[in-house]
Design a protein around this nucleic acid. Sequence first.
RNA 1: GGCCCCGUGGCGGAACUGGUAGACGCACGCGACUUAAAAUCGCGAGCCUUCGGGCGUGAGGGUUCGAGUCCCUCCGGGGCCA
Length: 863
Amino acid sequence: MPSLREQHVMARYNVKETEARWQSRWAQDGCFEVEADPAKPKYYVLEMFPYPSGRIHMGHVRNYTLGDVVARYKTARGFNVLHPMGWDAFGLPAENAAIERGVHPHKWTHENIDAMREQLKGMGLSYDWRREVATCDPSYYRHEQKMFLDFVKAGLAYRKESWVNWDPVENTVLANEQVIDGKGWRSGAPVEKRKLNQWFLKITQYAEDLLGALDGLEGRWPDKVRLMQHNWIGRSEGARVRFQLVGRDDSLEVFTTRPDTLFGASFCAVSANHPLAAEMAEGNEELQAFIAECNRMGTSEADIETAEKRGYRTTLEVEHPFVPGKTLPVYVANFVLMEYGTGAIFGCPAHDQRDLDFARKYDLPVLPVVLPPETDPATVTVADEAYTGPGKIFNSDFLDGMDIEAAKSEVAGRLETIGRGERTTTWRLRDWGVSRQRYWGCPVPMIHCESCGVVPVPEDQLPVELPEDVEFDSPGNPLDRHPTWKHTACPSCGGEARRETDTFDTFFESSWYFARFTDAQGEIAFDRDAADYWLPVDQYIGGVEHAVLHLLYARFFTRALRDCGYLSIAEPFAGLVTQGMVCHETYRADGRWLYPDEITKTDGGDWVTVDGGKPVTVGRVEKMSKSKRNTVDPANIIGSYGADTARLFMLSDSPPERDLEWTEAGVDGAWRYINRVWREITECPTALPAAGTPKPAELSAEAETVYRACHKTILAVADSIERFRFNSAVAQVRELSNQIFSLAGTGAGEAWVLRFGFETLVRLMAPMTPHLCEELWRQLGHDSMLATAAWPEADASLAENDTVTIAIQVNGKLRATIEMAKDSSKDAMIEQALEQPNVIKLLEGKSPRKVIAVPNKIVNVVA
RNA sequence: GGCCCCGUGGCGGAACUGGUAGACGCACGCGACUUAAAAUCGCGAGCCUUCGGGCGUGAGGGUUCGAGUCCCUCCGGGGCCA
């Protein structure tokens, strides 16, 4: 005979056993395996697939929990829900592991995938695992090689020599989007400029469309992300101006967004990489040195802005197009980018801060040409701040008196008339450089032949697979060093030729994986019917750090695939949610960071180290990171509390887009709640009627209240989930459970309402804590599975009370509340309000000056 | 420097379109159960108060019968672009 205590322990919720059992039931029954079915409405939920580092972290747990709630909820709402998972499996960490530990990237990656798959399965996520893909498998990347060849044919991919960002740590080229503040986005190393032959994808061809289509995403994408893409694409309208070079036949073409300030120009400047700079540098060591120095500088605008503005004055001069006899000196300057506009500018120091800094340094004239409002032209001066605000043009001949916009237009028109320039639009967005000098990526399917040039690998020879036998013992690209791999025959002339040894940027793979999931095992990239049915992704969820990387590339790629006949859509992600970071307090002792499990609290409430009892300084809450050691391993949490606890906590404390602070207390709270629900339902002392018993005619007042609360909550939780307010959904569920659990179960119909309440609760919580709910559903006597069950029906008439509470204000301050029948007339409301003792008192016998009544809400008496 | 977002109890956060601020939870306090503790359950709680009430959503002003919510200025934090 077990003791009471043992009985209690036995009866308690057995998380491990329960979660494992339902996970295998779901898998066995194929609950989450779906097929395209035109008869059913579809819903595609996708979380950004992970890089297989080997272990999931809390960011993953949050991301996938959010997606899983949506997937399970949408399934319950009758949608045919596609919810897949895969692996963004190419990338540098695998190569680094090979270098550091001698493990082959292939082996390392696949072992990591196996480990992470198990961890994800332990979270109880509703994935259709049959659709799993790993981007490093030839069965995946072969399609990407074909796409690339099609892009080449369509003129969407091309090879050119250009100045590129070189990451000296990763030993590879980076795209512009991958350089943050002049540093490699992953390595953090300052990037250098190198001139290399690279493959580019013509994302700029879609600049206008990528920008314009952002409007169509309003409301479904965070404004923040749309704004970031808007800024990144960076459309600017302006004009090209061709300045005649003095004493030469050619001219210098500059781009400006401020043609209205042309009369204030006092110099021209070209980029260090401008052809004119190279020409002038011939035989000029001083200029050569200056150009070399410019190339060492960071490439980002922020770098350029903070660096000292410097220039080298060449012997060249240009003629002002509208002022006969006026010439401007030409500088080579470190703040002019070859990649932007034409690589040359004219400087108007009075109205541009950079130009002003430059002019002051080199003692160039500063002529104001925009007169700020209510300023006397006779006294206007420019000190050390350029004026960029509105005003009237002056000191500018035919532009005098115009406003800025009119002047821009007038200058452009006159330039066009005299053939010295024209209106034009430029973009900040650059073409996407996709060549990487690394091994663990998709090989670029191209062959270099001495006589035929660059030749595509014939389609029947795809995929070009990575060789397995590679050495990582010296720096550089192992493909390039491989003894045989790159030697091949030219498909065109049959002569000796060399394979391209660069591989694709790994953002290539993630630019189309969402479409591959619609038919993940197919022989062709996408089955058109499956893709047309499932796409676009209805709800995409991931980190905001990809706002202008992955998300922009994927939008471009989808358009390119559409134009090459692969897909029918332009926008891959109809809805987007960007989740915040998972944060944690930081701890340190003796100047060393400590993991949360290395510290403990003393009786006095102070934090000390577990071994040694040294005092611990508690630091600010920061994003979980290995370097700060403020990480909590999800495996430990799931191991001790279970997946449902981890999931519930991820949802309950903060709305998804905000940062979430992981706290022990919070996890405990979630854990306690799960056990409370378990206990209240499985140990309910009231004998419940059998499942499916019809509602009794009589309900006690308490039972009626709880019954109505259930209907109310069904609607409220659905609304919260639809709006991504999962924290509110959790609060509503808890509120309902507080009501249900305090129902005595003794009055008329109360046993029936208890069952109804339990069932409602379990069904509402099922998307959030699926294992617990599945188990309780079974305990409540059901054979069906909640994973595939419909969302509970709410009776809207029951969700609303017959009476409402009306707030009574006097002069805007709450003085009383009254219960009234719903939809009572304004007159009735006012009549009742004026009878309130508090109102009578405050009116002091006077009649109110004004009374406002809002039906079902409020009466405000103005005394 | 420009643009955008955010600022609510001790803490995380509720409050959809202006209409009872602080739901729900965490931490806390008191009580019950217990030899005791843990667990659990119940109750309390924005601040001040002369117990009438007064004050409260970063600060100041404005619009309104009524402002956390709308407008202006400023402060603080974050992001993007320069």
